[in-house]
Design a protein around this nucleic acid. Structure first.
Lengths: 189, 189
DNA sequence: CCATCATGAGACATCAACGTCTCACATGGG
DNA sequence: CCCATGTGAGACGTTGATGTCTCATGATGG
């Protein structure tokens, strides 16, 4: 019969399509999401009980991709700056989804939010703190702020790319260089 | 009678309150906006024809405050980095409103957007370009991206402050230093 | 004291999205 | 060939926000 296989494939496909659509239009209707995925609204409801469940699933997907990117970036190895570059490169494909979740998260304020974000925040802050303790990073910018700024730059970058204001190929470079080096020109060391 | 005076004062107060509320909860109801401003929904509707008109008025307010901040920051005087710092300091009180508009703007996609943003974008990009041409700023980060990143960092900063993750007093310093200097520690010149 | 006007409170209709349901179809396996 | 399962299409009721309306009240000014 292959329930799991077929369902999982379709579910994942729907999830990816929904992420891509909601990245562009955060207020898209369930009907629009369904049509974007090439299925009917009824089938969409068979996969996800409602819009809330869909957003929650997207949140879980975003968390999973973030943690996978963190794992792949080996944040504890080598210079912290290189680890940050690896991380941004690894997380780039998820940036659109993260941008959507970053704005949508305000809907969940007050309630308990998914603990996955706490884990990711902690790992990111740990990376920045490691850079500070090794003397690579300046200490007047707190790890919490660098973490927040990384989220913001990822969202800005994803939005700028989707609007055509920044070339997709420059995404990683623009974010990593701004976050690490800033706008001011630096003398060659 | 004093129509204009009273109306203007109240209208501005309502606008400020709505901005503060919508910064925290972007999906706030017209009823919530009205109660937050201490007026009834009927009176709110007498000031703004509907939610759309309210958001448009907030957009106009945000544009006006941005342009005022740009004027006050004297972006054409002195080193570009100092001008950027003046600008961030001047724009700080509006950051929450800008954060709201930054996410809400996606609602207006497809339609023609307020030309005020184009003017502001152009002035910001001109400032960054001036810094590049004077040799202060690196040239691999495009003015368009620096402009976009500034918006994103302002929004992230406003959100982080309202969530208590960053101290309000550090707002200007965190944004300006990250945008200009980046996270990597810099040798004293 | 009276007239005017802005306001608050609330009723009311409208509307869009949602969630649930049924039914027909078609595709695939036994 | 027959049956089962997943699907599409669409109807239906519900909900929440919105926009409009009326009416009573309270303040202000003449």
């Amino acid at each position: 019969m292959g329930y799991a296989c077929l369902m999982a494939v379709d579910r994942d496909h729907v999830l990816r399509t929904a992420a891509a659509l909601l990245t562009r239009k955060a207020t898209a209707t369930m009907d629009e999401v369904a049509r974007a995925a090439g299925i009917s609204r009824a089938t969409l409801h068979r996969h996800f009980a409602g819009r809330d469940a869909l957003v929650r699933a997207l949140e879980a997907l975003g968390i999973a991709e973030c943690e996978a990117a963190l794992d792949a970036a080996r944040p504890d190895e080598g210079p912290a700056a290189d680890a940050v570059r690896r991380l941004i490169r690894a997380i780039e494909p998820s940036a659109g989804l993260l941008a959507f979740l970053y704005t949508e998260n305000q809907l969940f304020e007050g309630e308990q939010q998914n603990e996955g974000w706490s884990r990711i925040d902690a790992r990111l802050a740990a990376l920045f703190r490691r850079g500070q303790e090794s003397g690579e990073f300046r200490i007047d910018l707190t790890p919490a702020w660098l973490t927040e700024a990384l989220y913001g730059l990822l969202a800005s970058g994803a939005w700028a790319v989707s609007e055509g204001r920044v070339a997709r190929n420059d995404f990683t470079h623009m974010i990593a260089e701004l976050l690490l080096g800033g706008a001011v020109r630096r003398e060659e060391p």
